[in-house]
Computed example of a mutant assay.
Amino acid sequence: MKNENKFYDFEIEYKEDLEPNKQGSSQLLEVCKQFCKQKQITPMIAIFDRDEPNIMKKIHDDSQGFKNWGNGVYSFALPIPNHRQDVKEICIEHYYQDSEIKRTDKRNRRLFLSDEFHSNSGKHLNNPQLNTTEINKLKSNQLKIIDDKVFDSENNNVALSKNDFATYIYNKEEGFNDFGFRAFQEVFEIVNKILIYHYK
């Protein structure tokens, strides 16, 4: 595995056979609970966003930087990257720079940050033709990613879903093919630490 010119002595395989509706944190938590009941031939590592405090307590152990469920199942919460030290409720999109998060696709859709909108009216601060109904995210004192319910003057939803954003980066689509991954270094370090622990 290679990240930003640093090599790791492991390969990552993604578990592709999970049902699409089992991709949220509560569902991933249940996956950990089920899979730890029998020994896994290959270590299974579940990585969680840090934006749900109730889940955090169950999937992360600060003392060692990850949780050992037994039988080769591990989990951890995303570490807070250097450029987001003021944001405690991190999700994976926060690992990118603001300028990368705001990239527009060919259909003129993009992810939005909660600090782009007026917290009461939901109107975009720089483009009054845009507004969002995700008022709860605007009321939070944390910087949130908004990937739905941002409407233009013709009531078209111009928000890009997180899934589409990730797919564009993975496929190196035009406009999404020059992103930096330095912030992900610490994630790889934790995976490496888990594997050393597992195989020692």
Rank of each mutant, 00 (worst) to 15 (best):
P128L: 00
Q185C: 13
F165T: 08
G122F: 01
S140P: 13
L195F: 11
D164P: 00
D105E: 05
V191E: 08
N21R: 01
I135V: 09
D61Q: 03
V191L: 14
A46F: 15
N5C: 06
F188V: 05
D49T: 02
K22M: 11
N5L: 08
F10N: 05
L111W: 06
F165K: 00
V150E: 05
I145W: 02
E11D: 13
N108D: 15
K144S: 11
R107S: 11
E19Y: 02
Y95C: 08
I90A: 10
A159P: 07
L18Q: 02
K37L: 13
S140H: 07
S161H: 03
E11Y: 12
M56E: 14
Q23M: 13
D148Q: 03
T132G: 05
G175P: 12
N68Y: 03
C91T: 08
E19P: 02
I196C: 14
R110L: 12
M44Y: 06
N192I: 02
R84V: 05
E93G: 10
C32A: 13
S161D: 14
F7D: 15
G180V: 09
S121E: 12
Y95N: 06
N141P: 07
N3E: 06
L78S: 02
E134A: 09
F181N: 06
R50T: 09
K123V: 11
G175L: 01
C36V: 11
D61S: 10
F112Q: 03
Y197S: 00
Y14W: 14
G180C: 10
N68W: 02
P20F: 00
K123D: 03
D115Y: 08
Q34S: 13
I145M: 07
Y96A: 11
I47K: 01
E52C: 13
E93N: 06
L113M: 09
P43S: 04
N3A: 01
N21H: 03
P79L: 00
